[in-house]
Amino acid sequence: MTLGLHGEYKVHGGKLVVVDLDVVQGLLANVSVSGDFFLEPDEALADINNALNGRSVDLPATALAAAITEALPAGVVLFGFSAQAVAVAVRRALAKATGWADHQWEIIAPTVRPTVVNVALDEVLTEEVGAGRRNPTLRLWDWDEPSVVIGSFQSVRNELDPAGVERHGITVVRRISGGGAMFMEAGNCITYSLYLPQTLVDGLSFEDSYKFLDSWVLAALASLGVQAYYVPLNDIATDQGKIGGAAQKRLSNGGMLHHVTMSYDIDADKMVDVLRIGKEKLSDKGTRSAKKRVDPLRRQTGLGRTEILEHLMAAFVERYDARAATLTDGELAEAARRVEAKFGTRAWLERIP
């Protein structure tokens, strides 16, 4: 028997959900859901609590949310929260899911490295966090060669114009996560990677996990006057246009990679000379032109790239009490080994030709 467990979950753009409960013989007991949400009618709160009482502590969040949904009568209105949000709070009470404050976060400032090394580091550091050998970490990238980083499932032939790649001296590498190609000239992008345990997104849908993991950067941009928001699934945009995109990869050891590239400045003519961005790609974006689709941070803020980077790092440190960290010699050596064995090889780059 375990008494007095407590879990909280703040819905992105919504309300706080709090769950207090006991565990008796492996089952949830005395469940009490509260928060600053809205619920009509009042009696539905008892239905939510009753739907959870007696459930196994080993049920995943999806099953807990389904039990709540099934128990609610037709016409019940949940405003500012959801059955899924309650399930996440339950999982946090049971220590099967975690929140940001449950971890000691670290932050690695940008250092210029070859793009292929940055990609290899993403795999190495995700594995290290999953194995418990590194604290959850935010790492900011830097590089000095013009690059395109393609998604794990993209075709080299379909995404790139070889003549444009050769003409502009573009370095092309493939990353471990899905999503689209990232056109990255030195000094023209802001790229960061989060390495985290999957417990942080336990109970969240894939779509919600993107917004959840970037809530800090959206708030930091808002303080600079940039009102950014997510366009499902993984685009970050403002009313003036797209500013970036995110991608994720979950590893079998429990580690997770979430990374974002935002445009600071961009040579749009060069981008479309290198990338093959067809009409189908733009069909649901509300624009016919890839060049018009992107609106970089330099124009929207008037700030230098270094100023924006420093602001983002300070915001992350303040929000999550992150401490400064560096890459270890072992991590750098392992990244170099993987460049030779995987990320720097034609076999990996052209695994989907």
Rank of each mutant, 00 (worst) to 15 (best):
12 H>E: 09
256 M>G: 07
324 A>H: 09
190 I>K: 02
151 G>E: 10
143 W>C: 03
51 A>L: 09
17 V>N: 04
353 P>N: 13
137 T>G: 04
51 A>C: 09
196 L>Q: 06
302 G>F: 05
309 L>M: 15
284 D>Q: 13
230 Y>T: 01
334 E>C: 02
306 T>R: 14
91 R>S: 13
322 A>W: 02
217 V>C: 05
40 E>V: 03
328 T>K: 04
253 N>A: 10
47 D>R: 05
226 V>Y: 00
42 D>V: 05
257 L>M: 11
126 T>N: 02
176 I>L: 15
323 R>D: 14
243 I>F: 02
23 V>H: 06
134 R>D: 07
302 G>C: 09
117 V>F: 11
339 V>T: 00
76 V>M: 11
341 A>M: 06
31 V>W: 05
24 V>W: 02
274 V>Y: 06
165 V>G: 06
348 W>F: 07
206 F>K: 10
291 K>C: 12
343 F>E: 03
80 G>E: 12
350 E>K: 04
334 E>F: 08
61 A>Q: 07
3 L>C: 06
215 S>L: 10
132 G>M: 11
282 L>Q: 10
297 L>D: 01
85 A>H: 08
103 H>K: 07
251 L>T: 00
116 V>E: 13
31 V>S: 03
289 S>Y: 13
38 F>T: 00
223 S>D: 15
125 L>E: 08
16 L>V: 12
321 D>S: 13
4 G>M: 08
156 V>W: 15
13 G>E: 08
131 A>M: 09
104 Q>L: 12
9 Y>C: 03
83 A>Q: 08
145 E>Y: 04
172 V>F: 15
46 A>H: 07
129 V>K: 08
276 R>W: 08
187 G>D: 07
301 T>V: 09
136 P>G: 05
93 A>P: 01
82 S>P: 06
251 L>Y: 14
78 L>D: 01
270 K>S: 05
218 L>Q: 10
94 L>Q: 04
337 R>M: 08
184 M>E: 15
318 E>T: 02
50 N>Q: 14
83 A>T: 05
212 F>E: 12
305 R>I: 11
265 D>Q: 14
210 Y>N: 15
20 D>S: 10
80 G>N: 10
140 L>N: 01
221 L>D: 00
100 W>S: 00
257 L>D: 04
25 Q>C: 05
204 L>W: 14
33 V>R: 00
59 L>S: 01
211 K>A: 15
303 L>Q: 12
3 L>V: 08
296 P>E: 06
80 G>W: 08
127 E>M: 13
130 G>V: 03
48 I>Q: 02
91 R>P: 01
67 A>Y: 02
122 D>K: 06
15 K>M: 14
85 A>G: 06
120 A>C: 04
148 V>I: 12
48 I>E: 01
330 G>Q: 11
38 F>N: 02
109 A>H: 10
63 A>V: 03
53 N>S: 08
105 W>G: 00
190 I>Q: 05
44 A>T: 02
283 S>I: 10
60 P>C: 05
77 V>P: 00
91 R>V: 00
260 V>C: 14
51 A>V: 03
343 F>D: 01
134 R>F: 12
102 D>K: 03
